[in-house]
Design a protein around this nucleic acid. Sequence first.
DNA 1: CCCGTGTCAAGAGCAGTGCTCTCCATTGCG
DNA 2: CGCAATGGAGAGCACTGCTCTTGACACGGG
Lengths: 234, 234
Amino acid sequence: MISPGIIEAVPTARERVRAEVTAEITAAARRQLAEVGAAALSLRAVAREVGMVSSAVYRYFPSRDDLLTRLILEGYDALGEAAEAADAPADPPRERWLAVCRAVRAWALAHPHEYALLYGSPVPGYSAPPDTVPAAARVGIALGGILRAAAFSGALPPGTGGRDPALVSDETAAVLGGDHPSIDDAVRVRALLAWSSLFGTISFELFGHLVGSVQDGDRYFDRAMTELAALLGL
Amino acid sequence: MISPGIIEAVPTARERVRAEVTAEITAAARRQLAEVGAAALSLRAVAREVGMVSSAVYRYFPSRDDLLTRLILEGYDALGEAAEAADAPADPPRERWLAVCRAVRAWALAHPHEYALLYGSPVPGYSAPPDTVPAAARVGIALGGILRAAAFSGALPPGTGGRDPALVSDETAAVLGGDHPSIDDAVRVRALLAWSSLFGTISFELFGHLVGSVQDGDRYFDRAMTELAALLGL
DNA sequence: CCCGTGTCAAGAGCAGTGCTCTCCATTGCG
DNA sequence: CGCAATGGAGAGCACTGCTCTTGACACGGG
């Protein structure tokens, strides 16, 4: 404990190999997840894939749920990155909205099991660890930025200024366009609704609830998201 | 096979006791489901609860998944019944819409694990048995009936008559107001979107995605569903 | 240099799971 | 009345998450 800093800046060899093994485990787990889904993901199978015995994995993750939590966090980050990458801030708000929605759907279709892990039923009795919150918020923040841009470009009609923190929290209101006068609680509720509807639409498609109702998923999604854009005034 | 009819109308004693035991098993399974959720539902625990050994349960359900499928079917029926019971056809469409939405949410909040089983991630690799489809459609049919009533009362503006079975299937279009001239594919897409958004909103609330954003869930839900009603023209 | 300490892989083991198989008692029907 | 169908009980298999103990290894201070 004579080390100069609280946290050693340069990692020791031990720490480096530990980080490597941890990454190897999560990579194998992500492969397993993509193949068989979260429910059937077996810690022992992951251990076999990386050539370890199951008990050794517990040196890196205290439980299977912690491994899944790690995958949830990485999933949120990957999805958020895809959404942000699809957003071209120079485009008009409606195009940006559509582009981000399409990117989210594309990611979900490409990673159905990961999407189900993020937005399906919470695995145990659900308990979102606080460190997943910022990652989970990335898509919402991207969508909020679009709304904000639309407001500051003068595309939104002036609102009545309704404000109730019990309806929409201050943190969320800050993300959803902030303090622009044309954004009131009515707009914020619509924004949260549009956000929920985006994922509701994707979940319905991915979980099979639209089978028999919608055949051309691409076109249906585009038209539905266009309706949501109109609802938001984009 | 000399029995007079294809199916014996009056059940034999054997059949009666078999139906009773089956009901007892599903009742215990439903209790288990409500307590620990679908993922942790153990067929052996269900067997213990009804005082049987696990292998005996397999005389009634060929696998755990079949038991869960049974619970899914009953869940859809219970939810559909709650939705239909809340619908007062004499009320104006907007009130009917709000009443049904509130009933669906109330059922979901009262039966979170059952709701998660119905609308969360599909348990195995998902496979909706065809016999669950009619039960699953009940809420959608109730909502479609409201739209139809609104159309025939002349509350909806005339549409342009767009129609593409690849976008919205004929069966679904028939449920969504049928052949009324003011209902075209644009309205149908909005109806499917509103349907998805209803469950998307409930899922977001129930699965914790609105934690930190919405505090007064009741009021937020009412306002969001009112926005959806307006989107539908109700 | 060498020895103690901390890290980690490996193995055995426990309690639980879904599911299969065999054995046997009961029951209802010809 | 006897025979075949029915269904319960038990053992057993392969698998799971997780714990505990054992032993090998590397690192750093004396």
